[in-house]
Amino acid sequence: MGIISVFIEFLEKLGGKTIEVTEAPIRKIPRREMSIKDRLELLKQMREQIEKEKEEEEERIIEEAIEWREKVITKPLSERIAEGVLKYFRGPVESLSRSIKGLELDLYRANISMSKEKYVALMLGVGIIAGIISFVLSIVIFLPWDISILIGMAGFILGFMYMRFYPKILWRRRVEDVEKALPYVLRHMASLLSAGVGIAEAMVSVAKSDYGVISEEFNLIIQDMHKGASFEDALSRFEERMASDSVTKVVKQILRAIKFGGDLADILYKMADEFAFEYRIKLMDYVQKINGIAFVYMFMSVVMPTLLIVAILAGSLLSKRLIIPISGLAVLMLLAFPLLSTIIVVMIKRAEPR
């Protein structure tokens, strides 16, 4: 029993010492009541800190919104339309893109940096927008619903087909711009070659100059050479993109002069004079043709609508009723005659010499 009592006494002393050690830091902390002024000051600091954090959060949200808006605005509208269509119609777009042949080559020649699938999505998007606009315009001019639906479908088809042939149209425009600028570019290169500058440096000078499309094409040639293509291969790709007799002639003359030797500057000068002379001949023929087309345009856009209105009024007076409904007359005046005028303008533009 004596041993047990001694052990219990030891445990009691150990427990008391432990409690004393744990309570020691608490006893050292001074206890004081906060005054009302201190509490108000603390509440004021907490409120200021919360407002500051709230302002920082609002500024962060505004900065993110501005950054997102800048990205959306800087992105071309065509990209946004294509991405929107791909988001909801990826399956049909991919199936349709596989069925359209030759589109990749058209995009390559037109220098359109867009994948085939994305461009097909753009074709569908433009077709849908054109169809909706055509349908709404038909409703606005009070056409029947069935005719409005047909006009909307026609608008979709026209918009879709226009975008299908737009790369070819753009490629032809690029070829025309290149052929128009060829005499000036060839003289530019010939003057540099006469001064002792190399052919590659002369092409770099053209790429940095403001010759329009041909400066872009020369820049692509330089990029191809930087990527490892030979000078001959880069020029051949330029010839393939243009598919122009004039460009082919220039490329072959340059490659022949480099391979077999010869005064390349003199050759370029002669080709520049030849292209300039051919363009002047074409321009004279164009002026003669445009006189007849201009007469047709004036007749279709001014004389014919006036004669039609007079004929409708005369027929309506004789029959004592309007022989053509208002909706039909609106279609003629707002769609038919402007369309004919547009076709004539396009013919005049297409007849312009390269």
Rank of each mutant, 00 (worst) to 15 (best):
Y162H: 11
R109N: 12
F231I: 05
N219C: 09
M123S: 04
L143G: 04
F165P: 06
F231M: 09
K118N: 03
E179W: 04
A110V: 02
V175L: 10
S138T: 01
V126S: 12
G196Q: 04
Y211N: 07
F135L: 06
K227I: 14
F142G: 13
I141T: 03
V120A: 01
K116M: 01
I147Q: 15
S205F: 03
G91Y: 12
H226S: 14
E176D: 11
I112W: 05
L137I: 09
M153P: 00
K116E: 04
R173K: 14
L143S: 08
G155K: 07
I132K: 02
S148R: 10
S148M: 11
F231K: 04
Y166P: 07
L96P: 02
E201L: 05
A200M: 09
S194F: 08
L103Q: 04
I221H: 03
M225G: 04
G91K: 10
A195M: 12
I133V: 13
A234P: 00
D210G: 08
K208F: 01
E201R: 03
V175I: 10
M189W: 00
G198R: 11
L170Y: 10
F156Y: 15
S99K: 13
S230L: 07
S191T: 14
L193S: 08
M189Y: 01
A181C: 13
L170M: 10
V185A: 11
M163V: 14
L96H: 01
R109D: 04
W145S: 11
